[in-house]
């Protein structure tokens, strides 16, 4: 014999705390949105690597173009043969005119900033060179 006062009545559903759940979800959303915005998107350049002595002694049907990144008259510059270029736009314009079959070697001197070499590699890619090789210049 059931003497409970609730006997025979349907059980009442406890109220779902949707407000707190939505609060938490929004807090998480805001946190992740804020934290991801601090990491700027990165990309990569993938030049081949080659030692200087190998690069200098190679004989091929198509001679590679050589871009030297080194100080000229105390200021960093790009040198292709006798031409000295002071901006990456000028370098890109010159590279666009060159034959692409042999590829291009980018040689970087140690006493310039990294960005000069990376911008030269990017310019070579932009100009249409498929084979881009980085050659570290001898340490002095």
């Amino acid at each position: 014999m059931n003497l409970s006062p609730n006997a025979g009545r349907p059980k009442r559903m406890p109220p779902l705390q949707l407000v707190s759940m939505v609060d938490m979800i929004f807090l998480l959303l805001i946190y992740f949105l804020a934290s991801t915005s601090y990491a700027p998107p990165e990309s990569h350049l993938a030049p081949a690597l080659m030692a200087q002595q190998v690069a200098g002694g190679r004989a091929a049907d198509f001679a590679p173009q050589v871009v030297e990144v080194a100080p000229v008259a105390g200021e960093p510059a790009y040198r292709i043969g006798e031409r000295v270029l002071r901006s990456v736009d000028a370098l890109r314009a010159v590279l666009e005119e060159l034959p692409k079959e042999g590829g291009v070697f980018v040689k970087g001197a140690g006493n310039v900033e990294t960005r000069w070499a990376i911008e030269a590699i990017q310019a070579a890619r932009d100009a249409g060179f498929v084979k881009v090789t980085y050659v570290p210049m001898e340490l002095r």
Binding site: G108, G110, V112, E113
Partner: peptide, 10 residues
């Protein structure tokens, strides 16, 4: 970007 290229070369 401002690191010396000598470190990359090495």
């Amino acid at each position: 970007r401002s690191a010396g290229l000598v470190h990359i070369n090495r």
